[in-house]
Every structure is written in structure tokens, then in C-alpha cells.
Design a binder for these strands. Structure first.
Lengths: 271, 271
DNA sequence: TTGCTCCTCACGTCACGTGAGGTGGC
DNA sequence: TTGCTCCTCACGTCACGTGAGGTGGC
């Protein structure tokens, strides 16, 4: 072994496989100190070992290669620490999502199906303060929590008189394509002064079959399934985007078990 | 909507995207109740909703599609529960690995490099009780813990007289290819009666540069890096597989901070 | 000289997502 | 009739792993 390392020696020095080192070379993440122009043989230096160790640790935390690149390219320690902290928050969010999923699996395997009280009713057209955005289904929950909090704060700040239950309207493509338009609204009287995200709007009338979902959103698909079964049995064709009404939601309490969400499946007005 | 569901309606009923439903059809995981032979249109029934809900929950826990298939195909509840429990244990192992990785990243970012006491010495050939296997690098830690525990128990049970420090020998390909032969051994006198995994063997002599690693194995690459830097500086060519000697290890205590592992980098005998 | 190492394609993995281009159903 | 839905390829994503087939270095 000379004062520089062949890829095999560097592999043993860093516990990264040869294939991985070639991959990081190609990705520009860890470029060999030199490459023999005739043979293509890669050469690494001892100084590159600590860089490889850092990279290995970030990958151990499943930080994407592109982000590691960004972290290493940043000379400002504050920016760098923020990038790392952001990733650690993502890991924590992932963990809590997994914990929810475990609880949710246990629920479904152990608990009997509930008795569902499905109703049909007509919603009249109403003016409201609105936040509207096109987004990914998997970002929908985080988006909803932020949007509803902001909307609620704006309604209070502008001293608008709330005239109905806060709600949401979700494009069909959000479910079927995993991407689509979502709207949250709070019905209210008076003129909404537009802000960066909030504007005034008119929520259209609708005839809906509804079922109230109790608790956090991790099991909300069960309620959707029950409602879908009902409308299928009664041969009610779908008519427009799904609605939700948050009779008790994040705008009221942080206690998820207290949340009551009315799922509204729009149907043709048959009366 | 009729009493059966089009793929789009089923998508809204289950919160699975259309693309995902087609994928599960192709994979045989969730096959539509019927497919129109002329148009290829898929039809799902209300009864399939609860199956879809189960599948969605398992996927939320990142259980591979093939394993979900196996779980659903199993009629024996005991077998089924064991499959699920195995997956949950895997999730927990993953979590503790991530926690280690976070601590390890913190170590490397916050702690200064240590002072390394590298020595060179000659190991003489010695008889030993041995477990030997070809394995993946990523399974190496779990394999090592199990193998060393078993080996230690066998040496005691057979009342063999231990004549040296327990060790391991790891093929170069285990590092460079991520797959290769690993050996753990306990030097001892007397005849080893072979068991399913344990046999007698002769550990060859070697000249090694060594450095002691302190604590758990999550940071062992740092010690490898320091040792590699040393041998590179002194232009010592690698000669044979890496060795490790477990002066204090899992065979002695469960307290990882007490572990002392001597990493041995084999070099040519130059004396 | 003989293995062992290193090289570059090229393709596979996994669970879908992203279009393209065309057709069916209300 | 017009959108919207549904269909089937075919390819992309991500971080490598797995060969194939050939060459360099000690």
C-alpha cells in the first residue's frame, strides 16, 4: 500500500463497498483524489477517509445523496446545522408515523367494525374564508394542519363572524392520482381581506351522504370505506369532490381523540 | 355507482391510488373481483374494501408486498401473528439502528479525533474452536453476536481450556464486495467435538498492526480509518484478511461501553 | 506466471409515479 | 357530444447490487 489508497484499500479503511465508492464518484459526492488516465484506476488519500466517514453516517440516517452533497458544499455552519436538523426532524416525523401505523394496525385487527350512522343532507351555498392549493396526497395531513390553523387565526384577526362548521373540499384526483386540489374553508360573514394564502370565496351547495369519523386521521380510511359501501349499496352516483366538516378539529383542540370529522360524499340530488 | 366499484371509486373508498391498485393487481396482492374481457375495466366489490384497508396498513409499516401476500395467504392465526411479530421486531431493530446512527453522527461532529496507539506485533499460529460462514456485511453484526455467544457456550460446555483472546477473521471481500467469509474463534487447548456450527481449526500466524477500539461497534469504522492511515503512511502492504480480537466483548458483558476490540491489520513480516 | 484487483457497461431491485397515446362510459 | 375515466405500454426514481467480459498490477 502506498501513501494513497486503491479503491479496495479505501473500501476497507471506510467500510464502504467498492460499488458504493464508484457510485459516489459518479454522483460527484466523493471524487477520488486522482484517476489514472490510462487505466481508469481510482486513487484516494488518507484525508478523504474522514469525509467518507461523515458521508457514511449521513447515509446511515438515510439522508439522500443529493442532500449530503448540499450539506458538504455548505461552508456556513449555521446553514449546515439547519440542513441536518431538518433531516432529523424528518426522521422523527417518520417515527411517529410508524408508531401511528402500528396502533392503527392493532385497532383494525382487534376491534370489531363499528355501527355507522350515515345520514343524507343538503348543504346550502355559503360565503367563506378559503385556503386553496394543489398538493400531494401524502403531504395532505401536514398541509391541512397548517392551513386550518392559519385560516382560523385570520378569521379571528379580521373579526369575521363565523357562520358554519369549518370544512375542506378535496378533488377526486387527490385520491385516485395522489395529487390534486385541496381547499379548507371557514364559512363566515363579512368581507375577507385577502392575505398571502387566504381569500374570500363561495362554497357551492351540495347534497351529501355523511358519516362522522371519531379521533385522529390515521384511521380515516375506515370511515371512507363504510361510507363508500353505503353509497354503493344504494347506487348513488358520485357527484363532485369529497367534503369534510371539522366539527371538532385541530382548530379547537390538540387532543386528537376529541376530533370529530364529518365525511361528506357528494351525491346527486334525488329529492 | 353500481353495487360494485370502478377502480376510481374503489380508490376513493380505500385511499389507494389507481396506479397502486393496478400495481397490486399485477402483483396478485389485490385482484379485482372481475375484469371486463372486452375493455379491461376492473371491478371491485364492497367486501374487498376491508382487505384493501389491511394491505394499506401493512404497507404503512413498510412490509414488502410479497410478505403481505404471505400473511394474507396464511389461514393459521398463529403463523400469521408470528409473521407480523417478526416484521414488528424488524421495525424495532431498524429504529435502534437509527438511534445509534444519530448518536454516532453526533460523536463524529462534536468530538475531536482521539490519540491512537498503534502497535505492531506477531501472532503465532494457534488451535481454536471456530465458527465460519459466508455472509452479507450488513448482517455481520447480528451474526457475530450470535456466533460468539454460541462459541463461548460450547467452549464452556466442552470444558476446553481457553488459551488466548477470542477473535475474528474477515475476508477482504466482506468489506469491498459487502459479502464474504467471516470466522469467529476462541483459541483453546484440547480436542473440539464438532457441533452443527462449531468445529476445531488452526488460526494461522500473522504480523499485524493493531489499534484498540473502545465501545460499541457503531463507530468501529473510525478505528479502521485511523489504522488504515497509519499503514498507508508507513507503506505497509496488506497481507491477508483483517482480524479482530475481543479483549472485552459480548462474550464478557452486555455493557457495550466496556467493550475493547483490537483491530488487526495484517502486514508483511518485515523483521 | 497466476490469481487477484480493477475497469466499464448493462441490467436488476422495489413499489410505485409519470407521462404517452388511445379508448370507453355517462 | 364533451369531458372524464379507464386502459396498456414504457420508462423514471433511488441507491446501490449483480453479473459479464475484459484488463492491469504485483
Amino acid at each position: 500500500m502506498a501513501t494513497s489508497f486503491s479503491i479496495g484499500d479505501f473500501s476497507r479503511a471506510t467500510h464502504l463497498t467498492v460499488k458504493t465508492l464508484r457510485h459516489y464518484h459518479e454522483a460527484g459526492l466523493l471524487v477520488p483524489a486522482s484517476v489514472d488516465p490510462r487505466t481508469g484506476y481510482r486513487r484516494y488519500t488518507a484525508e478523504q477517509i474522514s469525509l467518507a466517514q461523515i458521508i457514511r453516517r449521513f447515509r446511515g440516517l438515510e439522508m439522500p445523496v443529493g442532500e449530503i452533497h448540499a450539506v458538504l458544499a455548505t461552508s456556513d455552519p449555521a446553514v449546515r446545522n439547519e440542513l441536518i436538523a431538518t433531516h432529523l426532524r424528518r426522521l422523527e416525523a417518520e417515527l411517529s408515523r410508524t408508531q401511528d401505523a402500528v396502533a392503527s394496525l392493532r385497532d383494525i385487527l382487534e376491534q370489531p367494525a363499528k355501527d355507522h350512522r350515515i345520514e343524507r343532507r343538503r348543504i346550502e351555498q355559503a360565503p367563506a374564508a378559503v385556503i386553496r392549493e394543489t398538493l400531494r396526497a401524502k403531504d395532505a395531513l401536514a398541509w391541512f394542519l397548517g392551513a386550518m390553523t392559519e385560516l382560523s387565526a385570520i378569521v379571528k384577526a379580521q373579526k369575521l363572524s363565523q357562520s358554519g362548521v369549518p370544512g375542506g373540499i378535496f378533488a377526486n384526483s387527490l385520491f385516485s392520482q395522489g395529487r390534486g386540489e385541496a381547499i379548507v374553508f371557514i364559512p363566515c360573514k363579512g368581507t375577507v381581506r385577502p392575505t398571502a394564502r387566504v381569500s374570500g370565496g363561495l362554497i357551492p351547495a351540495a347534497e351529501i351522504a355523511t358519516l362522522v369519523h371519531e379521533g385522529s386521521f390515521s384511521n380515516v380510511d375506515l370511515t371512507y370505506g363504510a361510507l363508500a359501501t353505503y353509497v354503493a349499496r344504494h347506487a348513488l352516483p358520485l357527484h363532485g369532490p369529497i367534503r369534510e366538516y371539522y366539527h371538532c378539529g385541530p382548530q379547537d383542540t390538540a387532543d386528537e381523540t376529541a376530533w370529530r370529522t364529518e365525511i361528506g360524499w357528494p351525491i346527486f340530488h334525488t329529492g
